[in-house]
């Protein structure tokens, strides 16, 4: 028996969350007195997982799996779990893994718990802590089934180094045509820009910015910080920004290290989706804006004056610390 973790990659490169779920898998394996095995699909530099406690890697190289396909990827993961006798399967919280995790769970008759934020609280009964009510609460959840699938929240466990020697084995899942009954025909993805899900820092703008023409300074601030850009719901509803940037309870969840909210009032639905971020900064003209109650740092002031200054100071800071 071992713990199996699916380590995600994008164009051959491991995502940051791959190292986080690897670290987590190692912690779970230790708790269960076993080792952690990873399955990677079309990833280069598999050895790098050894830094985070993975001792064995099932390396899948397959042209058929070049683009993500939930059913086919699920098949690879479930077959790997069977081969390894793995009872606990760990995945991240990306769009792709949230797509495949419930399928994996149903196929393995496993209890699935998503949005898990800490290492298991006990192995027997197997209990994990997860966020519920859009980050307004936590549940301590027991999994009763033999097989278990855990979806780890982004940025919740962090990277834990644990140098381990790895063995890499090729693994060829058995796939057939029916696994491709849903087909990707076009992927439309911004290149060279971090997505909200993968970003360490997110810079977000609200209705206080008055119009789409004022997003230049938001983009510039995000650029300096290597951040992703996001927005409040009305901003995307009015078409100032694409829907994919809408964050909050009914938009994308944000769990970055730093979230900077500019001209956003901090409505409960907005806060629910971003409160998992570790440090929150608010810039708002209104000292009574609810966001000030939820933030760590705040500036009461006009975004059109504060943001350019912040950009300038950050440039100086970068120059000094380069």
């Amino acid at each position: 028996m071992s713990v199996l973790v699916y380590t995600e990659s994008d164009s051959g490169k491991f995502k940051k969350n791959a190292f986080e779920v690897a670290s987590y898998a190692n912690a779970v394996a230790k708790l269960l007195g076993t080792t952690a095995t990873a399955i990677s699909i079309n990833a280069n530099e598999n050895e790098s997982l050894g830094q985070y406690g993975i001792s064995k890697i099932l390396n899948v190289s397959s042209d058929q799996l070049k683009t993500f396909n939930a059913k086919a990827y699920t098949k690879a993961i479930t077959q790997a779990a069977k081969q390894e006798g793995a009872k606990v399967i760990i995945v991240s919280s990306s769009s792709d893994t949230k797509f495949l995790a419930p399928i994996v769970a149903a196929k393995l008759e496993a209890g699935y718990v998503s949005n898990v934020v800490t290492a298991p609280e006990s192995a027997n009964p197997f209990t994990v802590k997860r966020t519920v009510f859009s980050n307004k609460g936590y549940a301590h959840t027991q999994i009763h089934t033999d097989n278990k699938v855990i979806g780890l929240s982004n940025n919740s466990f962090g990277l834990v180094e644990n140098k381990t020697s790895v063995s890499i084995e090729d693994f060829s899942p058995e796939l057939n045509d029916s696994d491709f009954s849903t087909k990707s025909i076009e992927v439309d993805k911004v290149v060279g820009k971090t997505s909200i899900a993968d970003a360490d820092i997110v810079v977000s703008g609200g209705r206080g910015l008055k119009g789409p023409e004022n997003w230049g300074m938001i983009e510039e601030l995000a650029d300096i910080l290597g951040a992703a850009t996001a927005c409040s719901k009305p901003v995307s509803d009015m078409g100032w920004r694409p829907h994919s940037e809408h964050v909050g309870q009914t938009g994308k969840p944000v769990a970055s290290n730093l979230y900077i909210a500019i001209g956003i009032s901090g409505a409960i639905q907005h806060l629910a989706g971003v409160s998992a971020s570790k440090t929150k900064v608010v810039i708002n003209t209104d000292p009574e804006a609810p966001f000030f109650k939820a933030a760590d740092y705040g500036i009461v002031g006009d975004a059109f004056e504060v943001v350019p200054k912040l950009i300038e100071k950050l440039k100086e800071f970068k120059a000094q610390n380069a």
Partner: peptide, 14 residues
């Protein structure tokens, strides 16, 4: 279409 991290994807199915 489905949302993916950083964009969207068009899908054909039945």
């Amino acid at each position: 279409s489905r949302e993916i991290d950083g964009g969207k994807e068009k899908i054909k199915t039945t």
